[in-house]
Every structure is written in structure tokens, then in C-alpha cells.
Design a protein around this nucleic acid. Structure first.
Length: 261
DNA sequence: ATGTCAGTGCTTCACTGA
């Protein structure tokens, strides 16, 4: 049996709950990593998610950020919440768990705008902390998917118009360098490997008619450790979910892994 | 020409973050 793993920045779990449940039921991912819950743990609608058939771990925060890992008919086992290296960091952006025989992390990487500035500096520090954790996982040869909203546009063909976004934190050389250093360590960009010519978007801004004009870009990524990259059979974006009523500004993004050899 | 949302606060909209 293949394993379907998805990432979805839902932009508010309370506002998005009907869309989230609908997506889970229609597409039935085995693992779903969520970002931007914008809710503290106490106010997350856990009962509805369980009723849809998913076990879940949450790392919430009131009003901002927040990540989750959902597993269809299973309970993910928590390994780590938050990244080491900055004790005063209170933002809920990283959650790591074991489920279905692999390690999975749900990531909400800092946006970093405006740049330059303290928010961009925080983004770059956070990316270094992520790389440190990712290197430890590679060294231990843990079969791992690091997935979520990376807030990085890796290539110029990952955006409708690179000139329009040239000053944005999402495609600064420093942001891209941090991304490609992780690929150099041995991680595989799953969407890119299946769609090497780009022009696959995962985000369309609410502003300026972004969806209507197809002004999108790719920032939701799935990074695979070497053993899992060998099992990658398909990858895609549930684009139609971006066009629905009360949609998130991100579309769900997914991969399919072959059963263990 | 930020043309949109979601969440918070003590609100009848302003502010923040994206």
C-alpha cells in the first residue's frame, strides 16, 4: 500500500474547519501536516478532527502560527516540539513525530518580511536551526519527511513573475542559500523532482486578484531523506481546493510513497 | 492602486500579520 503525505497551511483552523474536514474526507491523506492554526491548544476543534478518523498532535499558539500532525486511523507519537538553539523563541512553528514507520515534521518557517530587518534575521536564524536538526536526522538515518510552509521560493520558475517578488523575503539570495544548503546535505525537494520545469504553485494571495490571475508561487514543500526519496512515486497540489468558498490562501500539497521495498 | 483575510481587543472598527 502506498502512503500519501500532505501539507496544508490552513490559515486559521477555526475559520477553515469545514474546508479542512471536507479535504480530509475527499483526499484521505494518511498523514496531514497543518500550519497556521492561529489557535491555542485549548480552542482547537479536536473532536471534529477525531470524528473524521484522524489521530492528531497539536502545537498551538493564540492568534498566530501553530502546527499539527494528523494521521489517518493512527496516533502520531511526539518526538519534539520546537527547535533547539534559541531559548527565548516562543513561536509555535515546529512539531516532529513518528507515525507509520517514518519520522515527519510539520514546519511553519518564518515569513521574514519586511527585509532587511529583525524579522528577516529571525527567519535566517530559524533556517539554520532547522538545518541543524535536519542534519542530525540524516546522520541517524531516520526515514524522514520535513514538510510545511517554508516561505521560500526556491527557483525563478516557482513564481508567476520573479520581478514582482524580487524584494520579497521569500526569494532573497540568503533565503535560497539556506534552502539549497539543506538540499546539498541530502534532502530531496519532492515536488521539484516530479515537476522539474516548475510552474506549480501552492499559494495564491488573497490580494490583488492573485487567484483569478493565477499569480501564485510555490512555498509549501516536502523534503525527503534519501531512503524515502527512493520511494517517491507521485507528487501534486490539490489546486481546486484553493478556488472554493472560504478557502485558505494555500492549496494542499502532497506526495505518494511506495510501500517499503 | 495592496484590490484580502483571520484573529485579537473591549469592538462597533482599528490594528497586526501574512
Amino acid at each position: 500500500m502506498a502512503l500519501k503525505i500532505a501539507t496544508f497551511n490552513i490559515n486559521g483552523i477555526k475559520a477553515r474547519l469545514p474546508r479542512l474536514i471536507e479535504w480530509l474526507e475527499e483526499t484521505q491523506p494518511d498523514i496531514a501536516c497543518l500550519q497556521e492554526l492561529k489557535s491555542s491548544d485549548e480552542t482547537i476543534p479536536t473532536a471534529e478532527i477525531e470524528a473524521a478518523g484522524y489521530g492528531a498532535l497539536f502545537h498551538g499558539q493564540k492568534g498566530f502560527n501553530g502546527v499539527a500532525i494528523l494521521a489517518r486511523g493512527a496516533e502520531p507519537v511526539e518526538v519534539q516540539r520546537g527547535l533547539a538553539g534559541e531559548d527565548e523563541d516562543e513561536q509555535s512553528r515546529y512539531l516532529e513525530a513518528d507515525v507509520f514507520g517514518l519520522r515527519v515534521a510539520s514546519i511553519y518557517l518564518p515569513n521574514g518580511n519586511p527585509q532587511p530587518g529583525p524579522k528577516f534575521d529571525y527567519k535566517l536564524r530559524w533556517m539554520k536551526r532547522l538545518r541543524d536538526r535536519a542534519q542530525a536526522l540524516l546522520a541517524a538515518e531516520v526515514p524522514t519527511v520535513l514538510t510545511g510552509d517554508y516561505n521560500v521560493i526556491p527557483h525563478d520558475d516557482d513564481v508567476w513573475d520573479p520581478r514582482a517578488m524580487a524584494n520579497d523575503a521569500l526569494m532573497q539570495p540568503d533565503s535560497r542559500d539556506a534552502w539549497f544548503r539543506m538540499l546539498g546535505d541530502g534532502w530531496t525537494d519532492a515536488l521539484r523532482s516530479r515537476h522539474p520545469t516548475g510552474h506549480v504553485w501552492t499559494f495564491w494571495d488573497y490580494q490583488a486578484g492573485g487567484w483569478q490571475r493565477d499569480h501564485g508561487f510555490r512555498i509549501d514543500h516536502l523534503l525527503l531523506s534519501p531512503a524515502l526519496a527512493d520511494r517517491l512515486v507521485d507528487a501534486g497540489v490539490d489546486k481546486d481546493h484553493r478556488g472554493r468558498e472560504k478557502a485558505s490562501d494555500h492549496a494542499p500539497t502532497w506526495i505518494r510513497l511506495a510501500a517499503r521495498f
